[in-house]
Simulated assay, not measured.
Amino acid sequence: MKKMLTSIILVIISCGYSVSVSAQDQQRQMRKPPQEAYTLCEDKSENDVVNITTPDGDEIEATCQLMDDQLVAVPENHKPPQRQKR
């Protein structure tokens, strides 16, 4: 009985860990800028200003910044993601 209970607890913990890792993977994917942010900075230099059209049709100003060795348009009000402690 005690071994069975221990096994059940280990399975529950393992499932929780898997869900946690999956959630972290999703967060990393969500942080990646949309392709348009890269396209806007093609043929641009770092710190060049570009305009991004939002899904609502509004235009916001962004600056081309290096991210993972590629230029990407980053809006003025963008807050960089905080790194999680491991």
Rank of each mutant, 00 (worst) to 15 (best):
T54I: 01
L40A: 04
Q29D: 10
A73V: 07
G16W: 09
K44Y: 00
N47H: 11
A73K: 00
Q29Y: 09
R28K: 11
D69H: 06
K85M: 15
A62N: 01
Q29E: 14
L10E: 04
S22T: 13
I13S: 13
I13Y: 10
K79R: 09
I12Y: 05
I60K: 06
P75T: 06
P75R: 01
P75M: 05
A37G: 01
T39Q: 13
Q35R: 13
H78W: 13
R31K: 09
D68N: 15
T63M: 07
L66R: 06
C41E: 01
S7T: 08
I9S: 03
N51R: 12
D56K: 13
H78M: 01
E59H: 05
L5H: 04
T53A: 04
A23D: 13
H78E: 10
T6L: 15
D69G: 07
L66I: 09
K79H: 05
C15A: 13
K32Y: 05
L71M: 04
D56E: 15
L10M: 13
H78Q: 06
V72H: 02
V19Y: 12
P80I: 07
D69L: 02
L71P: 03
D43Y: 10
D48R: 03
Q35I: 14
Q70Y: 11
A62G: 11
L10S: 11
P81Q: 08
P34Q: 06
Y17F: 15
S18H: 12
V72L: 08
V49R: 10
N77S: 05
R31E: 10
D69P: 01
A23R: 15
R28A: 09
M4L: 11
N51D: 14
S18P: 06
N51I: 00
D48V: 07
V21K: 15
Q35E: 15
I8D: 00
P81F: 08
L40Y: 05
P34I: 07
P34G: 07
C41G: 03
T63S: 10
M30V: 03
P33Q: 09
Q70A: 10
Q29S: 13
P81Y: 05
T6F: 10
E61C: 01
G16C: 10
D69K: 00
E42Q: 12
A23E: 14
V19R: 11
K85N: 11
Q29K: 14
Q82K: 14
Q65R: 15
M4C: 02
T53R: 11
K32S: 05
I52H: 04
V50T: 02
S14G: 10
C41L: 06
P33M: 06
A62K: 01
Q82F: 03
P34D: 12
D58A: 10
